[in-house]
Each structure stands twice: as structure tokens, then as C-alpha cells.
């Protein structure tokens, strides 16, 4: 791509995303260690995530991502280290953390045998929202997604792209500080995928931090910053642009592979250069 694209107009990116207002920290992790017996799943992790940021959390299978996310969402206690999420301490206030985050995964998020409206009400109830607030936000949500006419339809009869958008809207219904997304756009068509990313951008713009885990490196390219885990450690953390510069590559996929498979970074990557 480098050879085929020429600058046309605009300004050089001497400052680029570095000048973005970083705002306050919503996730602070210092020297986090998690052991299962003698196995070290998270080996001294230290990083911060900022308000309104889209943060990509990458790593090969078994790198320790799931363990870290379970700790960040208050489901698992660390072995040692400091973890603060949405202002709460993961050691002492894990229940409070759970109330201030949202979660959506690709596989399961909505109840198929409930209607659109029932799913929204159910999640609103779980998050402890008042009936009045649920009613108000349900209407706003349906209108915004233009789903009002489908409100009494069962989820099982709705197209996948529709469900994905609804699942995301439901995950942020209680306006959490942070929403965790697991491979949010896997398997959806390219148009729905774009609509989905626009929803994510809008959410981040409204001040909700978006924490994305994914195996798909082209999803990582949409994030403001990405971290890459390998064998329990964070081995890279920067904007996609800076990571590509640092590793002198054209895509995050190449960065990932050169980190996760050292010594074999020159493999047949020409084939995947878009």
C-alpha cells in the first residue's frame, strides 16, 4: 500500500493522536500478578486506560487476556498488585465494579426467546435501573436504532447484524464507565460492521471507555491504542500508527506476528498486505 498511496493534501502527522486529550484514568493496573498454582497467567501487568478511549486488548490464545479481563470486571481476585476500575478497588469493591461496567460478546448477549423489549427490560433490571429510567432509555434506544417496529419481536427471528447492534446498545443501557467487547464485529457483513464501529465511536465520544478484545487484527486497527499480550505479559502498547512505525510494518497483524512468533517475522506476509 505504501507504494501506491501518495499524500494529496492535509498536514503531516507530527503530533497525531499523541495530542489527544487523555483525560482521566478509568482503569489503573499496577504490577498485577495472577497465579493459578504455579502457573503465572498474568505476570506483572502495568497499564492505564483513559476515559472515552477505544482500547484494544490483543494476544494469542492462552496469553492471559481472559484472566486479565475477568479481574478487570470484578469476577476474579488478583494474586497481587493494584487494580482500580471506574474508581473502585478490585480487591475490596468488586461488586461496585460490576455495576459500572457493561459487557458484550459475539456468541451470546441476548435471550433468543425474549422479545427485543423484554431483553432491554431484563438488562435494565439486572443493572438496578428504575422502571421509569428503563422505560425512558428503551424508547430512546429503539428510536435511535430505528427498531421501534420490531420491539415485540423475538430475538431468534432477527438478523444477526440487527442483534449485534441491539446487544451493544443493551450493554451500554446503564451508561457504564467502561464497556467490554469481545470480537464485536466478528462474522457480520461489511455494512453492518461499519454501522457498528460508528456506534462504538459515538459511545466513546460520549465518554464511555470501550475495551475491545479480538483475534482479528483488522478490528484492532479501529482502536485508539492497542496492547499485545504474550505469555502473561504486555509486550507492546501504543497507538496502531506508532506500533506500525515502531515495527516498520503496514498492518497490526504483522506487528502481532513478529511479537508472538519471534524469529519468523519475515514469513510470507506479502500475501496479506492489503
Amino acid at each position: 500500500m505504501k507504494n501506491n498511496s501518495k499524500p494529496v493534501t492535509g498536514y503531516p502527522s507530527s503530533k497525531g493522536e499523541e495530542t489527544m486529550e487523555r483525560g482521566e484514568t478509568v482503569i489503573t493496573v499496577r504490577n498485577l500478578v495472577k497465579k493459578f498454582g504455579s502457573f503465572v497467567a498474568n505476570d506483572n501487568l502495568t497499564f492505564e486506560v483513559y476515559r472515552g478511549e477505544i482500547f484494544g486488548f490483543l494476544g494469542a490464545n492462552g496469553a492471559g487476556k481472559t484472566t486479565a479481563i475477568r479481574i478487570l470486571s470484578g469476577l476474579l481476585q488478583p494474586t497481587s498488585g493494584e487494580v482500580r476500575v471506574a474508581g473502585f478497588d478490585a480487591w475490596k469493591e468488586s461488586e461496585m465494579i460490576k455495576k459500572h461496567i457493561g459487557y458484550m460478546c459475539q456468541k451470546f448477549s441476548l435471550y433468543e426467546d425474549l422479545t427485543v423489549k423484554e431483553n432491554i427490560q431484563l438488562y435494565g433490571g439486572i443493572y438496578g435501573m428504575s422502571d421509569e429510567l428503563i422505560k425512558e432509555r428503551t424508547e430512546a434506544l429503539l428510536e435511535k436504532l430505528r427498531f421501534t417496529e420490531y420491539k415485540d419481536r423475538l430475538i431468534s427471528g432477527l438478523p444477526l447484524g440487527f442483534r449485534q447492534k441491539l446487544a451493544f446498545a443493551v450493554a451500554v443501557l446503564h451508561q457504564p464507565e467502561i464497556v467490554f467487547l469481545d470480537e464485536p464485529t466478528g462474522g457480520v457483513d461489511p455494512i453492518t460492521r461499519r454501522q457498528f464501529w460508528e456506534m462504538i465511536y459515538e459511545t466513546a465520544d460520549s465518554g464511555i471507555t470501550v475495551f475491545v478484545t479480538t483475534h482479528y487484527m483488522d478490528e484492532a486497527e479501529y482502536c485508539d491504542r492497542v496492547s499485545i499480550m504474550s505469555e502473561g505479559r504486555i509486550v507492546a502498547l501504543d497507538t496502531p500508527e506508532n506500533l506500525k512505525k515502531q515495527f516498520n510494518t503496514e498492518s497490526i497483524e504483522e506487528v502481532f506476528i513478529s511479537i508472538a512468533r519471534p524469529g519468523k517475522s519475515s514469513i510470507n506476509l506479502l500475501n496479506i498486505n492489503q
Binding site: 501506491n4 501518495k6 499524500p7 494529496v8 498536514y11 497525531g16
Partner: peptide, 11 residues
């Protein structure tokens, strides 16, 4: 601000 525009090959 800090806009960069480049002509690009289609993916």
C-alpha cells in the same frame, strides 16, 4: 485538526 488525506488503493 491535524487532518491527513491520502489517495489509497481499495481494500
Amino acid at each position: 485538526e491535524n487532518v491527513q488525506i491520502t489517495e489509497s488503493e481499495a481494500h
